[in-house]
Design a protein around this nucleic acid. Structure first.
Lengths: 149, 149
DNA sequence: CAAGATTGAACCCTCAATCTTA
DNA sequence: TAAGATTGAGGGTTCAATCTTG
């Protein structure tokens, strides 16, 4: 693979991609936080608990579903428990069950419409009519791991 | 603006975009760090010092160029100074001048080819031949602030 | 005063080390 | 023992409060 400096065109693509990613993510998180006080990670945890587990999941399953390592999840849950968004209880067998609290459920209910609205506003409506297909294809391609050195 | 839950197609676009952004950024930063020990923010600071200021910039100008607030930059420079990547000196008039050190320059020289290589590998080559135009147009559009409520 | 910079606290993420217990 | 979870340290980001100095 070449190592020369990026051409002007290449640099422009890189910069546009990087900036667009940061801009959209920042705006969506800002909207959710403004509406509910939830952070991005808070929202990610609560949606999984409700959508995948009907309100509770074993901590290890949650980690798997959200694709975080154990440590990251443990730290996050500690902060969320402090704010009474979730609760941890020993599981039957080994491990821990994480459960959304009433307060967590209430907050999530407010956050979801704000989330959908924000994504439409900052991403979807900007794609126009024909581009979504191409855009989706590219994004799905970018996630894949490249073949080889 | 609508507030109903995202449709399956909408959710798929959102998820693909979010995941692609995280994946590409993570990989590029990992490559730079593996090659040089520099973090993403380290690299961002050093490139600006060299490209825009020939090795040194007033701290406020650096903050402007990199689009960070003063506090973020101050914290970052404190850590970088500790590792002898940059040096701070009082400026003529008010403020502070930030200067890249010899060690910083040497590390940056190693980082740049790794950076170009990584971006080609994780982003550019995956775009193929015809897509870059469309992709660039979309990304540049996404950065713009939407018109209105 | 006001521009320019620092600080501290709270949250977030990662890594390596350390429990805990079936 | 090994799966499951916690902890601590260090870097990163944000906000509000606080210097510092021309």
């Amino acid at each position: 693979m070449r190592e020369e400096p990026l051409s002007a065109d290449e640099a422009r693509i890189w910069h546009a991609w990087k900036s667009a990613g940061e801009a959209v993510m920042t705006r969506v998180v800002r909207d959710i936080t403004a509406a509910t006080g939830l952070s991005g990670p808070d929202f990610a945890v609560l949606t999984r608990l409700v959508d995948l587990g009907d309100g509770e999941l074993r901590q290890q399953d949650l980690a798997e579903a959200i694709a975080w390592d154990k440590s990251r999840l443990s730290h996050q849950l500690t902060r969320m428990e402090r704010r009474a968004l979730v609760q941890r209880k020993p599981a039957g067998g080994k491990g821990v069950v994480v459960r959304i609290t009433a307060a967590g459920k209430k907050t999530l209910t407010k956050a979801r419409p704000a989330h959908a609205r924000s994504i439409r506003r900052h991403l979807l409506t900007k794609l126009g009519r024909e581009r979504p297909k191409t855009f989706l294809a590219i994004c799905e391609r970018l996630q894949s791991v490249e073949d080889e050195e």
